[in-house]
């Protein structure tokens, strides 16, 4: 459910509106559900509304964890 995508805010507009960019595709969305968004933030967009901000550091940590868990498992498999 709920197709929602991380997008970068590239422009703030009046009335809680903003323009986001995803891989060269721009779209106007509403920021009515989130406070204090600044240009450059990543937000998760669903049906034209930002639901929340995305934390890039946490995303990197998650990816690093995937890599670490996978490497450990693959090494053990080869070793075993």
């Amino acid at each position: 459910m709920c197709l929602a995508l991380p997008c970068r805010v590239v422009e703030l507009r009046p009335d809680d509106m903003a323009v986001i960019d995803m891989a060269g595709v721009g779209k106007e969305i509403s920021l009515a559900l989130v406070d204090d968004v600044v240009v450059g933030d990543y937000v998760i967009v669903h049906v034209g509304y930002a639901l929340t901000r995305l934390d890039p550091d946490e995303a990197d940590k998650t990816l690093a964890l995937f890599a670490e868990l996978g490497e450990a498992a693959l090494q053990e498999t080869t070793a075993g």
């Binding site: 197709l3 995508l5 995803m22 891989a23 060269g24 595709v25 779209k27």
Partner: peptide
């Protein structure tokens, strides 16, 4: 193309 992929993601 990256833009086509992104637009497709948006619309499912």
């Amino acid at each position: 193309q990256a833009e086509v992929a992104a637009a497709c993601e948006f619309l499912g």
